[in-house]
């Protein structure tokens, strides 16, 4: 694994993004600690330049780190399983990586989410010259540092672990888990049903909220859509894994989310889970923009526009997700007259 060119590509992207982020974060520290917008002394002028540089560096770092995360995702989902004995998809790779792999993915996700939040605040801050969000933005940018460091640490651990891994059982483990016990299977079925109905209901509620946000961006809470979106993303992922994926694989008892990324299924996983990621990110953008609107009236206008833009983003992502997640199931039902499990 250590010799795989994609591993090198991942590390080069992560190191370059990390360098940009570190440079920006160092400048943001000065802004966070000493920002005094009412002063025009030489130190404040230097801080203003630092704030501008940190913003540019942060945007570039976010781009580079997103690229690194995508390279890692491509590696896990499409490439590295060929280096792991017994692996057929990302499930095998994550098995080989142990818990470090999952931790790395979580910390990468949290880091990018924080930086995305910073990007939203910076985008609002730049709309007015008062710089009311400059210090908060700097604080948020710096707060991504520990998560990014943990992401890098666990990525290193996970990739080094793959180097010496024995044969993994990959999707056989998924089959085994499903077929092992009737009680567990029944629990899974009921969980899947709950998640399916919650994802449908939550999705409908979220869509309705987004339509309201598009029409009245300065009314209602921003926290509510964010909470619903985060809960919906969990439910939708479980429902897709347990129910929706079967219509891609056209077999029951293979609830593997990683196989959806394979070329055999047209890389549908990238688009489906991409849709979920967009919903979560934009709902957080709505929450932050709403908070900004309430706290800083000077930014109410730009914040309202940002809320509308994010609402459109969520609506588009949810339509895409629904079409890709439910489309094959509906097509199956129309073609055969029954669902895959035999129920009419």
């Amino acid at each position: 694994m250590i010799w795989h060119p994609l591993t090198w590509a991942f590390w080069v992207a992560a190191a370059t993004g990390g360098l940009l982020y570190a440079t920006g974060a160092v400048q943001a520290v000065d802004v966070m600690l000493n920002w005094t917008p009412a002063h025009a002394d030489i130190d404040q002028l230097r801080r203003e330049r630092h704030a501008e540089s940190a913003a540019l560096l942060g945007h570039w770092a976010l781009g580079f780190l997103t690229a690194a995360a995508l390279l890692g995702l491509v590696g896990v989902a499409l490439v590295w399983h060929r280096m792991v004995p017994g692996a057929m998809c990302g499930t095998g790779v994550l098995q080989a990586m142990g818990t470090d792999g999952s931790r790395a993915m979580i910390f990468w996700g949290v880091s990018l989410l924080i930086l995305h939040g910073w990007r939203v605040l910076d985008g609002l801050d730049v709309q007015r010259p008062q710089g009311v969000l400059t210090r908060t933005g700097a604080r948020l940018m710096i707060s991504a540092a520990p998560f990014f460091l943990l992401a890098v640490f666990y990525s290193w651990q996970a990739l080094m672990r793959v180097e010496t891994v024995p044969t993994v059982s990959c999707c056989a483990a998924v089959y085994d888990r499903v077929l092992s016990g009737a009680s567990e299977s029944a629990a899974l079925k009921s969980l899947a049903a709950i998640c399916l109905w919650f994802s449908l209901a939550g999705g409908a509620a979220l869509l309705a909220l987004m339509v309201l946000k598009i029409r009245f961006p300065d009314r209602g809470s921003g926290a509510m859509p964010a909470i619903i979106a985060v809960l919906w993303s969990f439910a939708a992922t479980v429902a897709l894994k347990q129910v929706g994926s079967a219509y891609y694989y056209q077999v029951l008892s293979h609830p593997c989310p990683w196989c959806l990324f394979l070329p055999d299924y047209y890389g549908a996983g990238f688009f489906i889970f991409g849709g979920v990621a967009v919903v979560v990110m934009e709902s957080i953008a709505i929450w932050l923009a709403d908070r900004t609107r309430r706290r800083y009236p000077v930014l109410a206008g730009p914040a309202g526009k940002r809320i509308q833009r994010s609402a459109w983003g969520i609506v588009t992502a949810m339509i895409g997700f629904t079409m890709l997640a439910l489309g094959p199931a509906i097509a199956w039902r129309l073609r055969t007259g029954v669902w895959l499990n035999g129920s009419p």
């Binding site: 025009a40 203003e48 400059t134």
Partner: peptide, 20 residues
Amino acid sequence: HPTAGEVWADGQPVSRWPSR
């Protein structure tokens, strides 16, 4: 940058604005 005082343009204190 003025060491004290301000420059206003069209009703905005531009000399107090950050560089961006």
